[in-house]
């Protein structure tokens, strides 16, 4: 598709002017890492089964990085285009309006990828982060990140599809996003949660994404069947629901 490239460029520039996603995908995780890494360092800790705080946090923060674009900026961008009839404007042109939806998704993913690289670079530079120990672990981490991304974007798609207006989308996205990042271990380690809170965590897809990423990065031998199936289920069901429910106007 020859016109996808100019659309991507257009959407990327708009994205770079959008303060909230740029800050929360690029700067916020690094700031979190600097804060907790600065306090606890990366020394092996009893609480984390002998892992360092930074080694545990970076894979968890990767979920944060894909959640903010997947659950917030992606659905809000779609809701804006639909609500303000921008999609309708583009439907009247020779380009397929769905190209704008695809471009918004890709631009958000690119922003998250940039955020992930920054986070890992900050970990390596400042806190002696241990990278995945083998080629297989690196591949597993990359695969886990892709799956986590797809799951969050599928949920974001559902948010955009069910919200009847741009304002409703903002409300729904906030309701989904904040529990997802604070109760899943993506920002605050689950190890310090009381058991009642953990039950809430068990209901959040992001919890499984955090677990999967930590296992892939640190511990190749762990059983991740549950994590994989929950996330795969979210991807399949979420995508199907989003595609079915999305309205163009």
């Amino acid at each position: 598709m020859a016109t996808l490239w100019p659309i991507l460029r257009f959407e990327w520039r708009r994205m770079m002017r959008n303060f909230a996603p740029v800050f929360f995908a690029l700067a916020f995780p690094v700031l979190m890492l600097c804060m907790f890494g600065g306090i606890y360092g990366n020394k092996p800790s009893q609480q984390f089964d002998g892992r360092g705080t930074v080694d545990m946090s970076v894979p968890a923060y990767l979920v944060l990085v894909v959640s903010v674009t997947g659950l917030m900026s992606f659905p809000l961008g779609l809701a804006e285009y639909r609500d303000r009839k921008v999609l309708k404007r583009f439907r009247a042109t020779p380009v397929d309006a769905s190209a704008f939806l695809v471009a918004q998704g890709l631009v958000n993913i690119a922003l998250s990828l940039l955020g992930a690289l920054l986070l890992v670079a900050a970990g390596c530079l400042f806190f002696d982060l241990h990278l995945p120990p083998s080629g297989a672990a690196t591949a597993a981490t990359a695969g886990a990140l892709v799956l986590a991304t797809l799951a969050m974007y599928a949920l974001g798609g559902v948010v955009a599809a069910v919200a009847r207006s741009e304002r409703a989308a903002v409300a729904v996205a906030n309701l989904v996003y904040f529990p997802m990042i604070f109760l899943s271990g993506a920002t605050v380690p689950l190890q310090i949660f009381p058991s009642a809170m953990k039950r809430i965590s068990d209901a959040l897809p992001a919890t499984y994404a955090v677990e999967l990423l930590q296992h892939a990065w640190l511990d190749g031998s762990a059983d991740v069947a549950l994590d994989l199936s929950v996330l795969a289920g979210v991807v399949v069901l979420g995508t199907a629901a989003a595609v079915r429910l999305f309205r163009w106007e």
Binding site: P6, F10, R13, V86
Partner: peptide, 19 residues
């Protein structure tokens, strides 16, 4: 039908020229 937010006039023109 509104224009996309956070875009410059020139960028929108370039986009239409491409489309």
């Amino acid at each position: 039908s509104q224009f996309p937010s956070r875009a410059r006039v020139g960028e929108l023109c370039d986009l239409y020229e491409a489309i």
